[in-house]
Design a protein around this nucleic acid. Structure first.
Lengths: 233, 233
DNA sequence: GAGTGGTCTAGACCACAAT
DNA sequence: TTGTGGTCTAGACCACTCC
């Protein structure tokens, strides 16, 4: 075996795999430094470095005097976080509601096939959902989903659960790439968002990866007058 | 004195301040772990932690067998990086040129005063620069600068050096907050960017902090048809 | 008071770079 | 060969949480 890995790396991997295989879930305590030191036959300082790095990476959270716990999954992202739009609206103290406009089986166009890494004509799932904040439309979510990653996508109830929340649950997020642009919306989107004519959209195109495949390609359209991306660091 | 700071923190601060005050410049070697351990009267492991954290933060770069060196300044940022627009254009293999439209001393409006944490009427510097990629305008940079942070701002040549590059050099970046919006540009901006009427702008509003103060408040206007923000993780 | 993480020591051996 | 960083040990004391 490759015994070349430093001990602290081995310990990091061990803890990570326990979290990823579900043995230790969000909020669970993981073994103490002392216990891990005994288990791996290393000194406490070595374990300390391993766990401190996981803590820096926000994989675990440490509380002095109490213990080390698996952190809540965070999807830092768009410079901001990839937050569920429902949570984002709730955080503002407003009410979220979503309307399902479309949920269908379709076939990949040339352009979609390229982005998913499949062949044109291969099956894809497609959904269009409008998200409302206090009954005012704030986002049109136009999403294509890889059936191999989420085969039950079409049978979900997307008025109770956003597509994003569902995908996060069934497909562990590995990576995200995105683009933000400003553009004039197509008429159909302008209508769903009840925009005055001539108002631009702020659009986030996002592609998520899971289990080595492209899981989902989404375009999120927002009326310029009602939405901004913000962040700091 | 507050002796409460852990030793490794004290060492980190010491190294950081040497870099920020210019004693150690980009590419310079900093003292060895052994030397710092002697200087601060601590063990090498403690110095190692301090410098390793600076290395994680990309403040310094370590080369085994060789030494520790001050890293090139990188401005990770907009979800992406806070890259100098000139570098960004150069990375695409294109030619960057900038035109200085305005460079003046002005006074803070109520709204600017709030953002800078100063009083309305206090002095501010103001610049407007147009950035061109292959002679096509791609960004209008409208920037206000805190004179306390960059007193020599007005005497710079901003056709050879972007305001951003100058500020990065004289004012160590501590933090950034930003907002991205889509909007219809005011006529003056639309003209500078040679936009067709009705085309929206993609705007990045950015506020940078340095030495505990707000250093700069900038609005970066981009024609929607020629610019996107992109990133991945 | 018992258990946990936060920090630190004074050594050690190794891998790698420069010479 | 010498000097540097990379890693590790087997202890230690402290601050904090929980009971």
């Amino acid at each position: 075996m490759s015994d070349k890995l430093p001990a602290y790396q081995t310990i990091k991997r061990h803890v990570l795999s326990r979290i990823q295989d579900g043995t230790w879930r969000e909020g669970d305590a993981i073994p103490t430094e002392e216990a891990l030191a005994r288990e791996f036959g290393v000194s406490r300082m070595t374990v300390n470095r391993a766990i401190r790095e996981l803590s820096d990476e926000q994989i675990v959270e440490r509380v002095q005097g109490s213990g080390t716990f698996v952190a809540q999954q965070k999807y830092r992202a768009t410079l901001v976080e990839i937050r569920n739009i429902a949570d984002e609206i709730a955080a503002r103290g407003h009410r979220h509601r979503s309307e399902l406009q479309l949920l269908e089986r379709t076939r990949a166009t040339e352009s979609l096939a390229r982005r998913f890494g499949i062949r044109a004509g291969d099956p894809l799932f497609h959904s269009v959902v409008v998200h409302l904040e206090n009954e005012l439309p704030i986002q049109v979510e136009d999403r294509h989903v890889n059936p191999q990653v989420a085969p039950d996508y079409l049978s979900q109830d997307f008025t109770n659960q956003t597509p994003n929340a569902y995908l996060m649950r069934v497909a562990p997020l590995q990576g995200v790439s995105f683009e933000i642009e400003a553009c004039t919306p197509p008429a159909s989107v302008g209508e769903l968002l009840q925009m005055r004519s001539g108002e631009p959209c702020l659009v986030l195109h996002r592609q998520t990866h899971s289990r080595g495949q492209v899981a989902s390609v989404a375009s999120l359209w927002h009326p310029a007058s009602r939405y901004r991306f913000a962040g700091s660091f």
